[in-house]
Design a protein around this nucleic acid. Structure first.
Lengths: 118, 118
DNA sequence: CGGTATCCGGCCTGATACTG
DNA sequence: CAGTATCAGGCCGGATACCG
């Protein structure tokens, strides 16, 4: 696919990544391996169970993560990155680096603003 | 900034890029240089004037694009990528490539599904 | 423990009309 | 030509309660 605007496929990637909690969920699974539902919940203190489940389901539907259910009482469900999901890592890395620099830049700008005021 | 989930800065980058028309606007400006408001509108047939203006303003606020107004009748406004905006190009490229592959993968899967049905 | 169901407020986006 | 104003609908995400 040529890299012309008319052939834009950026949105295809964004659809997968966008979601209030998806990036951080992916980082957890990428960097810490398989996780149970409850472990993720513990690491993401502000997320509701409903949202956690929803975001995980959406990622699962796209083969980005795998969901493994153990039929036992109490239930146990494990989530892990698929090989395909791992292919997102370069993009997430690039955004993390850019985003880090961006927040730095922003705070520097604000500092200048404050100087002008005072 | 370490690349731990707790330090996640991916969202900082996503905030800038996300918006129904931002990626394609950026691609146009990146690959075709300075454009007038009307030219962008012509290349994005489905966007409304209101949305085009809004997305451009948001990108301008983050220093991703520059807005140059010519005080004349009729008005003329030109938009172009800033150097800072150009730093997003690797991310957009990565997403474009991933997205291209993703849509390919998807259509292959659907083809398999159709075989099963018929 | 992990997951559903329901309700609800806010934001994003679109349609349309108007302005300098 | 480029932009603003207003109204309205739809989806996202949060709070809460309940289920196997």
């Amino acid at each position: 696919m040529e890299k012309k605007p008319e052939n834009c496929r950026v949105d295809n990637a964004l659809e997968i990544i966008v979601g209030k909690w998806k990036p951080i969920i992916l980082l957890h699974l990428l960097q810490e391996g398989t996780k149970r539902h409850g472990e993720l919940k513990k690491n993401l203190p502000d997320i509701t169970q409903k949202m956690l489940t929803k975001q995980l389901r959406e990622l699962e539907k796209e083969d980005i993560i795998e969901r493994k259910v153990y039929s036992q009482i109490p239930p146990k469900v494990e989530y892990s990155i698929t090989d395909y999901g791992r292919s997102l890592e370069p993009i997430l890395d690039a955004m993390h680096h850019w985003g880090t620099n961006h927040s730095l830049r922003k705070s520097q700008k604000e500092a200048i603003q404050n100087d002008k005021i005072s």
